[in-house]
Amino acid sequence: MIASLGLILLCQLIGEIAVRESGLPIPGPVIGLLLLFMLLLGRDRLAILRRGPLHSGGVETAANGMLAHLSLLFVPAGVGVVQQLDLVTDHGIGIFVILVLSAVVTLVVTSLAFVATSRLLARRRRAE
């Protein structure tokens, strides 16, 4: 458990360092995500990686446990927003309306683009 958490933190740490040094516009944890993903893939090929948290589901249990309560982690930032709502309500409640509209349009366009492309590909594959 501790070793698994340590491995996750280590991946993030390396990601943060890489982002700081390179100036890439990506959050450090996303680099950490890629790193852990590559470690998991590497483990399937290299016996040397198959130990500690990368052995018998250690890091999997820790990660899935954390993700089961992903919602909790947004609460502190969310509370900060409630306290500063006047920053946006100063400009009228119109902001709420346009944020909802933009979210709806984005959800519709994204999901339709996904579904349409995957249907088109499936049809072409069947035609071949």
Partner: peptide, 28 residues
């Protein structure tokens, strides 16, 4: 809020590790 965040920061901190943890379901 600053005083609240003194306590809540321990939860907030986990956002980074949780992002890294997304590698596991992605891998699976």
């Amino acid at each position: 809020y600053a005083r609240y965040f003194d306590g809540a920061q321990f939860v907030h901190f986990l956002l980074g590790p949780a992002t890294v943890a997304l590698a596991v379901p992605l891998y699976e």
